[in-house]
Design a protein around this nucleic acid. Sequence first.
DNA 1: TCTACTGTGTAGTCTAGCTACATGGACGTC
DNA 2: GACGTCCATGTAGCTAGACTACACAGTAGA
Lengths: 302, 302
Amino acid sequence: MDVRHLELLRELSERGSVTAAARATHRTPSAVSQQLKIAQREFGMTLVEPAGRGVRLTEAGRLLADGASTVAAAIEQVQARWDAYRGEPSGTVTITALPSAATFLLAEVMSDLASTEIRLECSDVDIAEAEFAGLAADHDIVIAHSLTGVRPAGADGLTVVPLAQEPLDVAMAADHPLAGVAAVRAADVVDREWIGVPLGYPFDTVLHMIEQVTGAELTIDQRLRDNRLVESLVRVSHRIAILPRFTTPTDSGIVLKELTDIPSARHISAVLRPDRAERLAVQRVLLALRHVASEVERRHRQ
Amino acid sequence: MDVRHLELLRELSERGSVTAAARATHRTPSAVSQQLKIAQREFGMTLVEPAGRGVRLTEAGRLLADGASTVAAAIEQVQARWDAYRGEPSGTVTITALPSAATFLLAEVMSDLASTEIRLECSDVDIAEAEFAGLAADHDIVIAHSLTGVRPAGADGLTVVPLAQEPLDVAMAADHPLAGVAAVRAADVVDREWIGVPLGYPFDTVLHMIEQVTGAELTIDQRLRDNRLVESLVRVSHRIAILPRFTTPTDSGIVLKELTDIPSARHISAVLRPDRAERLAVQRVLLALRHVASEVERRHRQ
DNA sequence: TCTACTGTGTAGTCTAGCTACATGGACGTC
DNA sequence: GACGTCCATGTAGCTAGACTACACAGTAGA
């Protein structure tokens, strides 16, 4: 009896459809359907049956879904004992983060922490790469990014926890002349008109690399911080920009193209003072951050 | 919190060593050690510590091992509800089986069923391939083998459940001239002296195939049924025999060589009358048989 | 000191579990 | 009735999780 099958049946019971259960468990409906098939084979009984264009649990399936609640409760008991043993983390943890990383991290981190006694106090900040480390003096956790390495500049003496490696792609309008190619190279984009970012930002580093690789100077029309603003400009013109893969919506007239001949992934990391790193609540938040970041990376893997 | 990690800690707690826990869970100590390492990483705390040449659980590890009992109890509750839902199987199930398959199947099947109300009444029988199906009239489950296909001869109208596919190898003494080769071909063994089996046995079919492939007639010194007897003769001479891979001990002066140019795996299957197949207890035994057979196959995979 | 036992690390293999995509069926709208 | 949308499933292919084999180090007993 595989607990994961029980959990899936429970998810299906609660959410009503394979598609919804898939979303909730961060996989595709196809994966869920395959796992349901395996579960039915192993239990040797039909657990879901077709219902219109969806499915519904059979009586057997409902029995097992209910059983999953029993098992989940037992697991929660163990978790509670584990938390008590470790010293249950509580209190306020302050986080400051660059917005584009916060966008894909904090919602789920907050969900994850909802059942704990930890309160998050968050803020966002849009500054140059080298300025992030300094914020660790005033915040429990600083979520920083860097193109050059896991440790952002100025992080000497600080604890750095890698969270994710997020590719930075070339964003363009869906009707851009380059939109039909699979990926782009520096030579493809050097002569285009760009929306840039302020100097010192990791995205700017990518633009510098393009200039170095091609020996030409880019035409940078604007230098803007806010990604949504950048997206809105990219969408209605033939200007292009470097945008992060994990948070740039690609169903709204923008497409992302990988830059294949330049290493253009930024390291997103949590930076914090070592003493703060010892607090259990901070550790718990870091665990949540790493978990969510890992999930997001997995979802975006090609 | 991965239930499998909890179960492993519990197994380690109960059995006292990595090696014993590995044996109990049908894997190598290395695999258990690796899983413990992953568990410690995920729990973020040391769960086992060195103790002499073994390990012992830390306080944290014991807490989680105890937690595994809580979860296991919940799973048992679900299992009990599931059994009740399906109609708890009980009663006597009679099995007759060829000995070499029974040897690697029945001990674990009996263990598996120890907590049920099912009583097994077993017997072994050593007969020709075509004779097995007829036994289904008098036994709930007949464990048969065949070289030609999953369905043994004479199984028309019977339910056939595939259990395993077991290679039949060429067995020889460890000091046999061929003992040093990785595998053998028909041409390598056709001129050797053989211990055979009675006509009509699947092992005999392999010998016929060797004759067909090479166009020569084998020298078959004896025709014997009992594998242990055959092994004892092979061990002290340069005669060779076809023996099954899953049960032939290879740490006692005998080595097994794969016959690479002849398909020489036997199909082991459970044969039973369809009406008997409907009994829950019989289904439960079949489940156990399939499970154990699958485990044995996995263990013997190269 | 030597041998046996135990556990760990590394390299390599295999398949479990996933995604992408195509397809078929159900349902709602026109 | 036709068409578009939604949902689930099946297949092909990929990757990393989980394993084995083997080498090595440490411990214990003779």
